[in-house]
Amino acid sequence: MNAVAVVGYASADRSLTTSGVETLVPVITAALADAGLGRREVDFWCSGSSDYLAGRAFSFVSAVDAIGAVPPISESHVEMDAAWALYEAYLKILAGEAETALVYGFGKGTAGDLDRVLSLQLDPYTVAPLWPGATSVAALQARLALDAGLFTEDDMARVVGRRAEGAYLCCPLREHDVARVADGAAAVVLAATDRARDLRERPARIAGFAHRVDPQGLGERDLTTVPSAVAAARDAGLDGPVDVAALHAPFTHQELLLRAVVRAGSYLPFGANAMFSAGLSRIGAAAGEVMSGRARTAVGHATSGPALQQNLVCVLEA
């Protein structure tokens, strides 16, 4: 069976237009350059995005413009963070249907009221009609963890180098506990390992890769133990600490909940929450640590859904 490695990564922290196409062109170009791969050498393309984010229908179809689809290409899309598109591309290479793949995610989270838009991923019968907002749902999770004594508000603040003081934004969350909503795009290039060694001296080999989902009902799972992250880490073969981890945690308490699952010598700080590319960026950043030689083992993590409902763990090795 083939093994798969990350061989290139690029990202942008802005998106001018609601279509995202103009933002993707330079990001895809940079990722291919990082991998030393030509555009027409990509066997499979896969993207992650959602039309709800910027209110633009079929934005993933427009985004194909950024690829250059003549002659015809092999392409797919997931309505999730592009980390899940990376999983699809990983399987494609494992199955021998492709030797190389480029995965990209994009979104303009600032085009609408993200907190309100994200209400629509809640149960459509009993929760979404209340419009509770992603931050409020996360705050309910944070309080459960605080009440359970898993950590303190000071511990949460320390994740972003702050102290727990000042007014609450959505108690027990303060402004610093909530990652800034950002626009962005990211691209990761994958290759079967035989090919990867031709492309760069030190590819980041994917040693394990898994994703899991918890029940949709907020009352149907223990919001403080993140069962799907535990299961994904186990399925990905994670059985001890890695050198470095990049966790996708839009809230500081979620970073702490996830650190209990993914143990690492150090954690790359999570910057802004660029919806649909942030998770892929975490894997790209973790792979970058391996490709640069700064780390021998690394984990990139992505989350999706309310209160860490879905979790993906990608274990990378030199």
């Binding site: 907190d115 209400s119 419009w131 409020s136 705050a139 309080r143 459960l144 959505c170 969350l173 009352g219």
Partner: peptide, 26 residues
């Protein structure tokens, strides 16, 4: 109430148009 948070600025579509709490209620 099992867990709660405070919604100081209600937005369109929410159950109340003045500040209120969100809660998980058993």
């Amino acid at each position: 109430v099992v867990s709660w948070t405070w919604n100081a600025r209600p937005v369109e579509g929410q159950p109340l148009d003045r500040p209120f709490g969100w809660a998980l209620i058993r």
